[in-house]
Design a protein around this nucleic acid. Structure first.
Lengths: 241, 241
DNA sequence: CATCGTAACGGCACTGAGTGCCACCATCAA
DNA sequence: TTGATGGTGGCACTCAGTGCCGTTACGATG
């Protein structure tokens, strides 16, 4: 489709600018996507706009959709490293919460890019699917991490799967709200409180474990002091070991 | 690629057998996938094996991958109908649990098909991605249902997203275990207990409702003083009225 | 300065999924 | 017999993605 017989000066041919070319390529592609839509934009268009060959495009990106999600694999790798190097004595859900915050930071680091991508993924089904699968990879990594930590307790695998899903869901919800709002509020703090509530709900139930479990349901209309006193009384009656 | 000049008798031309042809087509395709792999099997192969034209294949299935997931949209529709017609006074998580059991039943109804599909999705990445996206659709429907039920409570959207993810994760975990075992155990019962524990953990936190309720779950191995301190801290954060 | 190796690039051809279009034919009604 | 309709086959086309090969720029070495 290149009917222009011009030899093309091919700017930016420095060998060390590998990542830079990739970035410019992605930028040109995103602009075209925003202009005329994702489906309507062919790889030939992108290549021509970037001043490179169609074949070269596929040397930088494995697919047309990959342009929208640059270096997603690397980010997943960072997460894996983070979890692998986590303190084994720390609360697994705390570790996961911290990791989720790191992931959120990845989006928050480049708000403009994230918002552009969000606008795209909302419109293009194939991109949305692509994002869903990449989210699932995170969830899978999370679940694997928890499975290892919960290996000893009964029902640990189930709990790991559920907890990982819950953490990811909380992260996605906060991120989505933030993206919808155009980046208006403090997503980091919001995620923190969200994960706190998730952790509170999920770290609790150890049914039929070795350690005894007591569940207290209190109405806060009662004075806090009275509640605590009653609780203390109840706890003292429990067999300690 | 049809170098056979034979006119082809074209069996099963009855006009009413619309769904039947679709089934036979899927069967032929799945056999070919099992024999020579998914990627290596072209649509031409499937069409030739089924005795139809390549063009006709795409009139029955929107894509090659659609053959593996037949009538997934209809099933999702059933789920939507189920949730739309649910008792508004019933516990939302109970309703969701029942719906999840119905979904599981869909897989359990045809074990042979489910197991074949599972073997395929484990090997072929594109099919795995396709399944992930379809699972996400269920989760989205679940979340929408819960969002409507939790519309009044603060943080309801977050809780809806997390709870939907948890229920779906529990369902998937049980289903996966069942598929991995080759359909060896009672998946229905397993799912029921799994969802019970999920519900127990998730129905608890009702932060800042009209009648405030806080549920504290404590391990008695922890020192009583630490437990009380943590509880006091949690209670102080609650909005009193 | 000359030469060689290497890595990136462009171009070409090819496969395969998916779509639009049209002609054909069987069925059914008038 | 005639006409309308719907499923089908065949053809051509677009586009994503891949393999292969010749070319070119650049750096190292003599």
């Amino acid at each position: 489709m290149s009917e222009s017989p011009t030899p093309k000066p091919r700017a930016g041919r420095t060998a060390q600018g590998r990542r830079r070319v990739r970035g410019e390529l992605a930028l040109a592609a995103l602009d075209l996507f925003a202009e005329q839509g994702f489906e309507a934009t062919t790889v030939d268009h992108i290549a021509e706009a970037a001043g490179i060959s169609r074949r070269t495009f596929f040397r930088y990106f494995r697919s047309k959709e990959d342009v929208v999600f640059p270096s997603h694999d690397e980010r997943l790798g960072e997460v894996v490293d983070l979890l692998d190097g986590a303190d084994p004595t720390a609360d697994p859900l705390r570790v996961l919460a911290g990791t989720a915050e790191v992931v959120l930071d990845m989006y928050l680091a480049e708000p403009a890019v994230s918002l552009k991508r969000f606008a795209l993924t909302r419109q293009v089904p194939s991109l949305r699917d692509k994002e869903i699968t990449s989210i699932d990879r995170y969830q899978r990594v999370f679940a694997r991490f928890l499975r290892a930590r919960y290996a000893d307790r009964p029902g640990g695998e189930l709990h790991a799967a559920v907890a990982a899903a819950a953490v990811v869901a909380a992260h996605n919800h906060v991120l989505r709200q933030w993206l919808k709002s155009g980046g208006a509020f403090d997503a980091k703090a919001e995620l923190r409180t969200a994960l706190d509530s998730v952790q509170a709900a999920l770290s609790a139930p150890r049914p039929a474990g070795e350690g005894n479990v007591v569940v207290g349901v209190l109405r806060t209309a009662a004075p806090t002091d009275a509640v605590l006193a009653q609780l203390e009384h109840a706890l003292r009656d429990l067999p300690q070991h």
